[in-house]
Amino acid sequence: MLTYGYWNNKGGTGKTSLCFQSVCFYAHANPDKRILVVDVCPQANLSELLLGGLDNGGSDKLLGIQGLVPRATIGGYFQQRLPAPFTMPSAVRFDDYITTPATINADIPTNVDLICGDPLLELQSNAISTLANTNIPGTNAWLAVIDWLKDLLELSSNRYDVAFIDCNPSFSIYTQIALSVVDRLVLPVMADDSSRRAIQNAFSLVYGLKLPSEIYSQYAFATRLRDANRSLPKVHLIAKNRITQYITDASAYAAVLRSIDADVDGLLRSNPEMFTFSDLEDGFVSIRDFQTTGVVAFAKGIPLYALKPGKRQVMGRRVVIDAEYKANMVHAMNGLVAML
């Protein structure tokens, strides 16, 4: 199973919205493939979108799933692992945590399954971190905990072809658990200086580059995984998200975007093993601002390709979806998915 992770340790880059559209577009274009979505974010926005969005009761449906016994979410699975952190409990069943969004939201492709997100992750974080740092002779406690998601996916009996993981904009322990099973990273960035710094921080956190001191190196995510002979995720795409609606990237942001290109180009030359691409142009994609079209799509939990242009009601207000604008959005997402 090939696994894509959508992550940036900076919030507000459009990570979840891009992941939602990527999942739907990919599943729609590949109906013969089975797709698994794992929402490893305590906000669980991706789960709400797949279950219908704000305007179609996605939040209420998610609350119902979180109320099941066992709790059918990633937090529910972690809850079962807390008393048995170093060995997989025999009582854990993969299907207990699976929701098929199409049975709730008819606009989602039927070949998509979901492990819902859960605010419990924030409450569990300190306990999980403590367990990971337990000193047990003969046991790599950190690796055993980092493998929690890997352990669960191994119970899926290889029924899926591709997985998409929406990661929290942090580098907390549950984000590391998610990233440890990712094969290919998709990094959304905005055209601003903070996104440029976030890209630099991302490479430091995941790959241990430019750490301020050797003291940190022995505890770094990359060091610990490499010491266990585990592979690190490779950067597959950097999505310049929310670019304005012009033919090329908006000129006001061009200098920042070029600086991001230059930073990545330098890393591509010095650390080619961190990337799935060798040419800079193969690793970047520009996504125009979804604007009103995106607001409607996310409010109703509808993929852009299924969104009908014209007048629509959203949360009691009437808005207009422009057909040409929508076509531009669909074209942009088709371009991104073609690179997966």
Results as ranks from 00 to 15, higher is better:
residue 308 K to T: 15
residue 135 N to W: 06
residue 253 Y to N: 13
residue 181 V to G: 01
residue 253 Y to L: 09
residue 177 I to L: 12
residue 75 G to T: 14
residue 99 T to V: 15
residue 334 N to A: 08
residue 250 A to P: 03
residue 243 I to G: 04
residue 56 N to P: 00
residue 107 D to T: 15
residue 99 T to F: 07
residue 65 I to F: 06
residue 125 S to C: 11
residue 148 W to A: 02
residue 235 V to Y: 01
residue 97 Y to S: 00
residue 250 A to R: 06
residue 63 L to E: 10
residue 105 N to E: 02
residue 269 R to I: 15
residue 76 G to A: 02
residue 123 L to G: 11
residue 257 L to W: 00
residue 257 L to I: 14
residue 45 N to F: 10
residue 237 L to C: 02
residue 179 L to S: 04
residue 217 S to E: 11
residue 195 S to T: 05
residue 68 L to G: 05
residue 171 F to T: 07
residue 21 Q to Y: 00
residue 171 F to D: 01
residue 200 Q to M: 07
residue 302 I to N: 04
residue 134 T to D: 01
residue 115 I to Q: 03
residue 236 H to T: 08
residue 253 Y to Q: 12
residue 186 V to L: 08
residue 144 A to S: 12
residue 132 A to Y: 01
residue 29 A to N: 04
residue 186 V to I: 15
residue 120 L to A: 10
residue 327 A to R: 14
residue 277 F to H: 14
residue 65 I to A: 03
residue 195 S to W: 07
residue 22 S to N: 05
residue 128 I to V: 15
residue 93 R to E: 00
residue 330 V to W: 04
residue 67 G to L: 01
residue 75 G to E: 05
residue 50 L to F: 13
residue 98 I to D: 01
residue 321 I to Y: 06
residue 69 V to E: 13
residue 36 L to T: 01
residue 165 I to L: 10
residue 338 A to S: 12
residue 128 I to H: 04
residue 301 G to I: 06
residue 293 T to G: 11
residue 112 V to G: 03
residue 199 I to L: 12
residue 215 I to Q: 14
residue 234 K to N: 10
residue 153 L to T: 11
residue 219 Y to M: 13
residue 197 R to P: 00
residue 195 S to K: 04
residue 153 L to K: 10
residue 11 G to S: 08
residue 182 V to S: 05
residue 142 W to A: 02
residue 241 N to A: 03
residue 53 G to E: 04
residue 203 F to E: 05
residue 179 L to R: 06
residue 172 S to N: 13
residue 114 L to K: 02
residue 295 V to P: 00
residue 92 V to G: 08
residue 210 K to S: 10
residue 56 N to E: 09
residue 261 D to T: 07
residue 151 D to I: 03
residue 50 L to G: 00
residue 160 Y to G: 00
residue 22 S to M: 00
residue 280 L to T: 05
residue 21 Q to S: 03
residue 206 V to L: 09
residue 336 L to S: 02
residue 242 R to G: 09
residue 326 K to V: 05
residue 50 L to V: 12
residue 180 S to I: 07
residue 303 P to D: 00
residue 42 P to A: 05
residue 11 G to R: 13
residue 272 P to R: 05
residue 315 M to Q: 13
residue 33 K to S: 02
residue 53 G to I: 11
residue 292 T to N: 04
residue 205 L to G: 07
residue 165 I to F: 08
residue 263 D to R: 06
residue 106 A to Y: 10
residue 109 P to E: 04
residue 298 F to G: 01
residue 209 L to H: 12
residue 132 A to G: 15
residue 163 A to V: 13
residue 243 I to M: 14
residue 219 Y to P: 04
residue 336 L to F: 13
residue 300 K to F: 06
residue 127 A to T: 15
residue 197 R to K: 14
residue 193 D to I: 15
residue 201 N to F: 09
residue 242 R to L: 14
residue 77 Y to W: 08
residue 254 A to C: 07
residue 300 K to E: 04
residue 196 R to G: 05
residue 154 E to Y: 01
residue 42 P to R: 07
